[in-house]
């Protein structure tokens, strides 16, 4: 770990100002991603700007939907009664993540910006295009058993976001509120926030240098209320998803009126599947429909040697999640 200076910011302007002065500086919230990376010498910011005192707080129902401040903690949001009853998938995705200790520290903003668990990225001894552009991608012919099959490129096959929450956010049309150094705010849908690796896997999202995540807003909807998050992993808790599915359905009289589907663990980014949604809407809520949707979601998958199983696993996970929400 490198030496760094540390300052606390109490206002957004102060925080963004610090990063304008020192573009190499980094914001620190819970630190559960950042410090791990610093200890492994993967990132070496000369300055840390603590943003925990920023007023990006609150979990409340607004006219645009559920608004969650970026500084809220994973556990607080996951345990919130409003979230539990109106946006169950959000709560489930948070409470199935990490460990209680981590969830007490980790912020919503930090969660959205967590980095891939690709073992090559996490160890500076390896080449890795995402960490050192142009150095190569050993995962292509190596340990890719928990890397992505959708949206990948020959440059990088990592699930850049390995976590859970953003999968649900992508499914439920959540919108991020961002604020830049000029104090200007903009709204970016989660589905447009993350970038596919293409030839530039080092560029993971549309955040401008120094820009802050202020809040995330999830529109209220019937499919949000009837939603679930299903996570499949190698141990019963405290593990990243091999595959996961965030689904929301509005079923009336046995027919699907609206559907939201996103997959985790299998995409280069949280994988919203409009193909699957198309296959669901207007159809009867039956296993046959769900299977067709799952097949549509995995169309175009590019499996490698060790992660080929994910094509089937993701489909089965999605079918199961749909069955659970539909109650069939």
């Amino acid at each position: 770990m490198n030496n760094f200076s540390y300052t606390q910011a109490t206002a957004a302007k102060e925080a963004t100002g610090r990063l304008k002065d020192q573009p190499q500086a980094a914001y620190i919230a819970g630190g559960t991603t950042l410090l791990d990376m610093m200890k492994a010498n993967l990132t070496e910011p000369p300055q840390l700007v603590d943003i925990n005192l920023l007023p990006f707080k609150g979990i409340e129902q607004t006219k645009d939907g559920l608004r969650i401040g970026a500084m809220e903690r994973m556990n607080a949001v996951g345990e919130n009664p409003l979230v539990k009853s109106q946006y169950p998938a959000v709560s489930e995705s948070l409470l199935l993540a990490a460990s209680p200790q981590l969830r007490n520290m980790a912020s919503i903003g930090g969660n959205i910006l967590q980095r891939t668990r690709c073992g090559y990225f996490r160890d500076e001894a390896f080449p890795c295009n995402k960490r050192v552009p142009g150095s190569g991608c050993p995962a292509l012919t190596g340990d890719n058993h928990n890397l992505a099959v959708l949206g990948v490129s020959d440059t990088c096959i990592a699930n850049a976001y390995p976590g859970d929450l953003s999968v649900v956010l992508a499914a439920l049309d959540a919108v991020l509120t961002l604020e830049n150094a000029k104090g200007k705010q903009r709204q970016v849908p989660v589905t447009e926030f993350y970038l596919l690796p293409g030839k530039t896997p080092e560029k993971e999202n549309v955040l401008e240098p120094g820009e802050l995540i202020v809040a995330v807003t999830i529109p209220a909807a019937a499919h949000a209320q009837r939603s679930t998050y299903l996570k499949v992993r190698e141990r019963s808790s405290y593990a990243y998803a091999l595959a996961s599915a965030a689904v929301g359905l509005d079923v009336q009289g046995g027919t699907i009126r609206s559907a939201r589907v996103a997959l985790g663990g299998v995409g280069a980014q949280p994988w919203r599947s409009r193909e699957a949604e198309k296959a669901l809407v207007g159809q009867p809520a039956t296993e046959a429909t769900f299977k067709a949707a799952a097949a549509a979601a995995l169309q175009g998958a590019q499996p490698r040697k060790e992660n080929a199983y994910k094509v089937e696993l993701a489909q089965n996970t999605l079918v199961r999640a749909l069955q659970q929400v539909a109650g069939v």
Binding site: G119, Y120, R122, T141
Partner: peptide, 19 residues
């Protein structure tokens, strides 16, 4: 890693022991 003979999961987040 089959090519580089270096472990890819030498940490307790990715080397799973039972919880």
């Amino acid at each position: 890693d089959p090519n580089l003979a270096r472990y890819t999961n030498a940490n307790l987040a990715d080397y799973h022991v039972p919880v």
